[in-house]
Design a protein around this nucleic acid. Structure first.
Length: 434
DNA sequence: TCTGGGGTCCTAGGACCC
DNA sequence: TCTGGGGTCCTAGGACCC
């Protein structure tokens, strides 16, 4: 704020941050009231705690604990598999409720929203904190889950505020109390300052947000870079970060990685893990109707060192077969015999919408079309029989995590079709497990 | 918290050009 | 043939977020 100018209002630019409390478990409780108040977690399908209810947190369950650990800390813990369909349904309802109050809403993550409520006092005949409370209670009444809300002059301030009182809290930060508030905020609680940056700041004697804004802006820019100066302004109540009101549909990259246990030295085992990730990534890329013309493969060893290999393609692809072949070639570059691996991953980048295909002069159009037909079959079969029911035989040997929702088929039959012929023709092998 | 998975953005430094 | 200076583009990797 410029020198000598008094704020005309306690909230010259009122921004809300709305943050759901223990979102996944809260949705589960809303859907099944008998779970209410019980120590509850989601993430069973991954073997780790993805979200813990407040009852579970009170008993010492943390994120991302291993499931076995969580169970021993808290016997009687209710472990659910994630139900993303329901979570994203609740998420959409949350955003649409907030949009009834103001059109300036940013869907920041599945369980968080920013809302700009400037100018709404006349309409609602309430001050800004009252409007914030009105939104909060409306969400709670209609969704049956609680949210915590922060009100401040910038996104950064609103976000710090919403975290201040949880669950079910409301924290307004009026302009005339900003300096008191900043003195109570540790730098690590500022969104954008992570552990590394904070360690550096501490070296210079900067521990609180107040210490931070007391430094010259230039100093923050020199020390931490662009973000440093942006946060400096945001913390002083200047809204630097714009609202992104369009929900994002485009990805810059799509990746899949997975840690497997036990770690392995066996080349084909590690390759199978990688190919499984490739299959998942291409299922996703097709779901979003995208194509990738860049691929990166990375392998992580027991010492947490990663080695990567990447390639570019002339033409974007969404084909599991093409992707699998390329990944396998990149794997050959990155793999070191004898090394103990624990994780593989694939990143697809240089994505574009795959609607219209530009065939180049040298493209084998028939081949491209048949690859696409294969993908349609994969997606359809897997839709019916479960993800990865039909998969590249290169991905064989990957354990499917049990505990997914829905019935696990009582009988699993495995067959490789036309193995000999396919091998002679150099075609990929498919395995179906149903 | 000795480490789960999926993303984005920024920056330093190299390659290349004039 | 060596060197100066400046611009752009790309890449790798770090840091951070949920």
């Amino acid at each position: 704020m410029p020198h000598g100018l008094l704020a005309l209002s306690a909230y010259p630019n009122p921004i809300l941050h709305i943050d759901c409390d223990a979102f996944f478990t809260s949705v589960e409780e809303a859907l099944d009231p008998s779970l209410k108040g019980k120590p509850l977690i989601t993430g069973r399908e991954r073997g780790i705690v993805a979200c813990a209810s407040y009852a579970a947190k009170a008993l010492g369950v943390r994120r991302p604990m291993k499931l076995s650990e969580a169970m021993s800390v808290c016997p009687g813990l209710v472990c659910l598999s994630s139900d993303y369909e329901s979570y994203s349904l609740f998420s959409k309802r949350l955003f649409s409720i907030v949009r009834r109050f103001t059109p300036i809403v940013e869907e920041y993550s599945i369980d968080e929203a920013y809302a700009e409520i400037g100018g709404l006092r006349r309409l609602y005949r309430m001050d800004y904190p009252a409007i914030a409370m009105k939104i909060k209670t409306t969400v709670q009444t209609e969704l049956g889950i609680t949210v915590s809300v922060g009100l401040g002059a910038s996104k950064t301030l609103a976000k710090i505020a919403s975290k201040r009182q949880k669950p079910d809290g409301f924290t307004p930060v009026p302009a005339d109390e900003l300096h008191h508030f900043l003195k109570t905020v540790k730098v690590i609680d500022v969104c954008g300052l992570g552990p590394n940056t904070c360690a550096l700041l501490n070296k210079y004697g900067v521990y609180t947000a107040w210490d931070y804004v007391s430094r010259p802006e230039e100093w923050t820019k020199k020390t931490i870079g662009k973000i440093g100066a942006e946060l400096w302004r945001e913390l002083r109540g200047q809204a630097v970060y714009p609202f992104v009101t369009q929900p994002k549909e485009d990805y810059a990259s799509i990746s899949k990685c997975k840690t497997f246990t036990p770690p392995s030295r066996d080349k084909e085992t590690v390759r199978a893990q990688l190919v499984r990730n490739v299959e998942s990534a291409f299922i996703k890329i097709r779901r979003y109707r995208l194509r990738a013309s860049g691929m990166l493969v990375h392998l992580r060893d027991q010492e947490f060192k990663s080695v990567a290999a990447e390639a570019r393609l002339e033409r974007g692809t969404s084909s599991t077969i093409e992707g699998g072949e390329l990944a396998s070639a990149l794997f050959e570059k990155a793999y070191v015999p004898g090394k103990l691996y624990r994780q593989t991953g694939v990143v697809l980048f240089k994505l574009d919408a795959g609607t219209e295909t530009q065939y180049s002069l040298f493209d084998d159009v028939a081949k491209i079309q048949s690859l696409r037909a294969v993908d349609r079959v994969i997606d359809r079969v897997n839709e019916i029989y479960g993800k990865h029911a039909l998969h590249l035989a290169t991905a064989d040997g990957v354990k499917q995590h049990s505990g997914e929702r829905g019935e696990v088929p009582a009988r699993r039959r495995e067959n490789i079709y036309g193995e000999n012929a396919r091998q002679r023709l150099g075609l990929p092998l498919w395995r179906i497990s149903v």
